[in-house]
């Protein structure tokens, strides 16, 4: 009897996960972000179909500084290289690396910050002093030092930038865990025998994830730019290997005369960052049951 009563309510048939998805789908801006990011990701993935890797570095000396036209959709640079091909192949590095960097920094930072906040005491002191040491060095300097020590290469760049970002995530996660650790519902959970792991997974993460997601998405845009500033300094991804930031920096002398050289990769970075920010906002709202269904 009681069961049939419940089933009558359509909402109750959804699990929590489905409800989160439901709320996310209703968020138009977030769905726009998803499609935008999918579009960029698909275009980048389809690079060999839309263009070819040979076109990335092939110079057409007769076709230098061509504004976007039918042959060269995005135009050409000072060596007559096809900007379209460079953007597509460059996007692969930009997207992959920045997501990898955020993912690594997020996971490691969350583990360090989470452990420090949850266990407190000596664990907290030791971990946070290590984080302080990381924070004392400006992140660009730190990344440069790490690359110099490890040597050049895309994955070494990823490691270096990720390590440089860990401190910030550790700090954010620690502070939200600290506020949640003494909340009464966590205490109630201890009272009915919840293990620490379950408390963290079921109560602390869902309640503390909002600001962390937002900060991670904001961080992503910055990371794309850091990759390119590293490239500009000749560390990590260096010209002629294309990467969105590198494309801007290698064309910087000519941007005034040929603005599309800066605009096109700039717009690509902006669109990606914007898409990710919309998704981040949408995720935060979707995880919060106080948002209307």
């Amino acid at each position: 009897m009681a069961k049939t009563k419940r089933r009558k309510k359509p909402l109750s048939e959804y699990s929590t996960g489905e409800l989160v998805l439901f709320r996310f789908r209703k968020n138009k801006l977030a769905m726009f972000g998803v499609f935008l990011l999918l579009f960029v990701a698909l275009a980048v993935a389809a690079a060999p179909i839309l263009s070819s890797y040979a076109a990335v570095s092939k110079m057409h000396m007769s076709d230098r500084f061509q504004a976007p036209n039918a042959t060269y959709i995005f135009g050409t640079d000072e060596f007559g290289r096809d900007l379209f091909a460079r953007i597509l192949y460059g996007g692969r590095i930009s997207l992959l690396c920045s997501f990898a960097i955020i993912a690594i920094a997020f996971v490691v930072g969350a583990l360090i910050g989470g452990a420090a906040g949850f266990f407190g005491g000596k664990v907290d002191t030791v971990l946070m002093r290590i984080v302080d040491m990381l924070m004392a060095v400006p992140s660009t300097m730190l990344a440069m030092a790490i690359i110099t020590a490890l040597g050049n290469g895309v994955w070494k760049l990823v490691m270096a930038l990720a390590i440089a970002q860990i401190a910030r995530f550790a700090r954010i996660v620690r502070s939200s865990v600290l506020t949640l650790r003494n909340v009464e519902y966590v205490e109630a959970a201890k009272c009915y025998g919840c293990s620490s792991l379950r408390i963290i997974l079921k109560h602390i993460i869902p309640n503390g994830i909002g600001p962390i997601i937002v900060s991670a998405t904001l961080c992503l845009g910055q990371t794309i730019l850091s990759i390119s500033s590293m490239g500009y300094l000749g560390l990590g991804v260096a010209s002629p290997t294309p990467e969105w930031g590198t494309i801007i920096s290698e064309n910087k002398i000519n941007i005034q005369a040929y603005p599309y050289l800066g605009l096109i990769p700039g717009i690509c970075i902006c669109l990606t960052v914007m898409a990710v920010n919309f998704i981040g906002d949408g995720l935060r709202d979707a995880f919060d049951p106080r948002t209307k269904n």
Partner: peptide
Amino acid sequence: YSSLDPRMS
């Protein structure tokens, strides 16, 4: 208010 997890039904 604070003794119930706001994210759970």
